[in-house]
Computed example of a mutant assay.
Amino acid sequence: MEPLIRARGLTLDYGRAGRTPKRALDDVSFEIPPGRVVGLLGHNGAGKTTLMKALVGLAAAQGELSVLGLDPCRDRVALLEQLSYIPDVAILPRWARVRELVTLMAGLHPRFSAERARTLLRRTSVGLDDKVKALSRGMVVQVHLALIAAIDARLMILDEPTLGLDVLSRKAFYEMLLDEWCDGERSVLISTHQVEEIETLLSDVLMLNEGKLVLSISLEDIDRRFVALGHDPAAAEAMAAAHPLLRYRAPGAAGGQAALFDGAPPPEVQALGQRLRPSLVDLFVALTRQPEINRRSGL
């Protein structure tokens, strides 16, 4: 099947004339096929929002980019009929009632279903006669998702959709997303800092570090490619000599320490530890570091 997103060598620089430009995206290439839930991970300033803006035609990048078979900048109007996008700040007019927003969306978007929006809203604690200004932040995000999910789109792009929400509100958001929108044919790209929270929801991961794509992989392939070994303190020196990606404390491991390798470590090292399942958080720490740490390390 044709991928919903195909990116080749995406590069984008920011900066005013006469100043050294900042490279926000650096030769980024990936594909997203239909029916996937993809996590876009990275520290603040890693390029996540810039990439999402490029995907929806809000930023022009060098390289090749096709979203739903269209050029995001040249064909933006046609693209937005088939794509849903929630930026990192969910803003709805505070004066409006929820039913007025449903009516407004029905007049604005040709693929919006008012009936479906009302069905989705019944899953929340928000009433159709409620005014936006009377809603909590969590309720506003739920309304925003209900409106967006009522669009018959093929791709949804979410930039930190649950930022600032409590645990229960985040859980309700993701339950609605998976239950009511993901159907095995449409795909979702989610940028978030809640790595542990969404790991079980994802099928794939894209990981950015200072504009570079350092990992593009399915969750299934993580277990095949990366090896984590729990070990006793006595084996720490031998583990370090094998140059793991990361050495960390693992309370659930025998000995309480672990080492993470990209690929299988030497047999003599494997014999010193017990294999563990590497978590997405462990990989994130191993493959992305804060910019100031990278600069000190010369990376």
Score class of each variant (00 low, 15 high):
Val37Leu: 13
Glu160Leu: 10
Leu68Ile: 09
Phe173Pro: 09
Trp95Ser: 14
Val98Gln: 04
Leu158Tyr: 11
Pro3Asp: 10
Ser297Tyr: 00
Pro87Lys: 07
Arg225Met: 02
Leu41Ile: 09
Ser216Asn: 13
Ala60Ser: 11
Glu81Asn: 13
Val143Met: 12
Leu245Met: 05
Leu145His: 03
Thr192Pro: 06
Arg170Cys: 07
Ala264Asp: 09
Met52Gly: 00
Glu210Ile: 00
Leu104Met: 14
Thr119Glu: 12
Leu120Gln: 13
Phe173His: 11
Ala78Trp: 04
Pro87His: 14
Asn209Thr: 10
Arg225Tyr: 02
Ala242Glu: 07
Ser136Asn: 03
Asp159Trp: 02
Leu25Met: 04
Gln142His: 12
Glu210Ala: 11
Tyr14Glu: 06
Asp223Pro: 01
Glu175Phe: 06
Glu160Thr: 03
Ser29Leu: 05
Ala258Asn: 04
Ser113Met: 04
Pro251Arg: 01
Gly164Trp: 00
Asp166His: 13
Leu25Arg: 01
Gly18Trp: 01
Leu58Thr: 01
Ile190Pro: 11
Val38His: 13
Ala90Gly: 10
Ile217Cys: 04
Asp232Lys: 09
Leu83Gln: 05
Ser29Pro: 06
Lys131Ile: 00
His193Ser: 12
Ser203Thr: 15
Ala61Ile: 00
Asp232Ser: 11
Leu104His: 05
Gly230Gln: 09
Pro291Trp: 01
Arg289Asn: 00
Thr119Ala: 15
Asp88Lys: 04
Leu178Asn: 02
Ala114Asn: 05
Gly15Asp: 05
Gly35Gln: 02
Ser297Ile: 09
Leu202Ile: 01
Met207Trp: 13
Leu40Ile: 02
Ala238Leu: 08
Ala235Tyr: 07
Leu104Gln: 07
Ala117Glu: 07
Gly127Thr: 01
Thr200Asn: 04
Gly9Trp: 03
Ala241Ser: 10
Arg116Gly: 12
Asp26Pro: 09
Phe173Gln: 06
Ser203Pro: 05
Arg8Leu: 08
Ile148Glu: 14
Gly9Pro: 07
Ile217Phe: 02
Leu163Gly: 04
Arg137Cys: 06
Gly47Asp: 11
Ser125Thr: 07
Ala271Cys: 10
Pro110Asn: 08
Leu4Trp: 11
Arg122Tyr: 08
Arg94Asp: 15
Ile32Glu: 00
Pro3Val: 15
Ser84Gly: 15
Ile222Cys: 05
Pro33Cys: 04
Ser113Thr: 08
His231Lys: 04
Glu292Val: 12
Ala90Glu: 15
